[in-house]
Amino acid sequence: MNTLPTVAFMRRLLRRQLLLALRSPVDVANPLIFFGMVIVLFPIGLGPDPVILARFAPGILWIVALLSSLLTSDALFRSDFDDGSLEQLLLSPQPLYLSVLSYVLAHWLITGLLLALMAPLFAIMLGLAVQAIAPLVASLALGTAVLSLVGCIGASLTVSLRRGGMLIALLVLPLYVPVLIFGSAAVQAAVDGFSVLPYLAILAAMLSLGIALAPFAIAAGLRIGIDA
């Protein structure tokens, strides 16, 4: 049996995930629409006062981005689990650590990165200071990668369970706390005119730790899910 080189295998897996996502554009758009709609709820709930909205904008943008990332991570392994291709992946000779990483990468590209690119639009609508917009995009791009890693752990642990949605939120949300703290603090620092680099450095450190450790947990979770 001839096996593909690992890098080529990873690339194919990534392309497959992206292709599957592109074939149903509505699924790709869903988290973005959700992001926009929840942002709209805040001026309605808090009142349209631009001063208040601008004050809360860093937190609002980050929390809503976090929620949309959470909502999409639930479905990440589901269809592959249902049609058996996940089991094939576990049986394949490729290192599971790396195959799992390409799933995470696909999830980040489809939700996290798109959210980060969409965020300036809503940031302007909420009246976020102009100098904070670039840090917002940077912190979201870094932070959502960590969220994708952690969310995939939750998704892998609940993949064999019928009632996943609410459960994954319970498992994963406490683990999101550090990312939220430093992500929103980065934007706030930019608003106040401080350097954002330390915050981005801490987010990058979390990302490195996540890349090093999370795939092991995801792989273990998937094995448990297939066995169950």
């Binding site: 752990i153 642990l157 609940t158 064999s160 369970l161 009632r163 459960l167 319970l170 498992l171 947990a217 273990a220 979770g221 448990i224 899910g225 066995d227 169950a228």
Partner: peptide, 19 residues
């Protein structure tokens, strides 16, 4: 909650251990 959600208690134990 995760332990409770699994019907297969052996898998539940392992999932909770990972978590």
């Amino acid at each position: 909650v995760l332990y409770d959600a699994y019907d297969n208690k052996e898998a539940a134990g392992r999932a909770c251990a990972v978590l």
